[in-house]
């Protein structure tokens, strides 16, 4: 028996919004420690890794580890029908073929029950090693969304160059070019609005703009985002979710051949 209850549907809505355009289907791996999901986009250059820790749920029970193969669009559509403040309980029998969803309104005067058919999702599980990153940039997630959106009007690659002085996002396209530099915040009145740049070694790497734009749509998950860059490893973009866990996106760099 698997059962997980979140107090507010809002967080699940935000999580599903952040991954469902990138990932069509995936396996929710449910175990005693929580729910995780690893899924690639259809072109296999990016990967989403989601972790929802059991402590982040109001109630959590998973007697034995199970894989729930889910169509993300279907799940997203159903969860969207819940009120933001509704409690949501996800459930599945050990050998069940459906994922049950129960929404309860705050006044407990409305209860909705849905079932989604489970599917066989053939997804390879990858071991993601802990990478040594050369650069870690923490910045407001809204700013990251704005920068990627603004540069996406010009070019299909964004070069991210980082030194101790700042981080530069630049692009070139048929119609011209553009670049935006962010400097490290000198005074930090508000942690969430700060730009913090940690540099072990300066680095410049190029990435597909359309994926950065996709990732940056997760801004609702956290006011801050971290970009982790290293030589020879994929970019890791992380949106932490307080006690709940995180959504991480990995993207292969564009390498000149």
């Amino acid at each position: 028996m698997f059962e997980a209850r979140v107090a507010q549907a809002e967080i699940l809505k935000k999580i599903l919004d952040s991954v469902r355009e990138l990932v069509e289907q995936g396996n929710l791996d449910c175990s005693g420690t929580g729910i995780s999901l690893q899924a690639m986009d259809s072109s296999h250059v990016s990967l989403v890794a989601l972790l929802l820790k059991s402590e982040g749920f109001e109630r959590y029970r998973c007697d034995r580890s199970i894989n729930l193969g889910i169509n993300m669009q279907s799940l997203g559509k159903i969860v969207k029908t819940a009120g933001n403040h509704d409690a949501i309980t996800l459930s599945s029998e050990d050998k069940g073929d459906v994922l049950g969803l129960m929404f309860e309104s705050t006044e407990q005067d409305k209860v909705s029950n849905y079932e989604i058919k489970l599917m066989d999702v053939d997804a390879e599980q990858l071991a993601i090693p802990v990478a040594e990153y050369s650069v870690c940039v923490r910045m407001p997630s809204a700013e990251f969304a704005r920068i990627t959106r603004d540069l996406s009007t010009i070019g299909d690659s964004v070069l991210i160059s980082c030194t101790k002085d700042g981080v530069q996002f630049s692009t070139t396209g048929d119609t011209g070019s553009g670049s935006i530099v962010l400097r490290q915040s000198s005074s930090v009145d508000d942690e969430k609005k700060a730009v913090v740049i940690e540099v072990q070694e300066p680095i410049s790497l190029s990435f597909a703009t359309k994926f950065l734009v996709q990732f940056s749509k997760s801004a609702a998950l956290n006011e801050s985002v971290t970009l982790n860059l290293g030589d020879g490893v994929p970019l890791m973009v992380e949106y932490p979710m307080k006690e709940m866990g995180y959504v991480r996106f990995y993207l292969a760099p564009k390498l000149s051949n």
């Binding site: 250059v45 599980q125 071991a127 994929p234 292969a252």
Partner: peptide, 14 residues
Amino acid sequence: IPVQKNITSYFGNR
């Protein structure tokens, strides 16, 4: 022309 490797080439199978 820049190339993007498959993301699986960076991560091992579990």
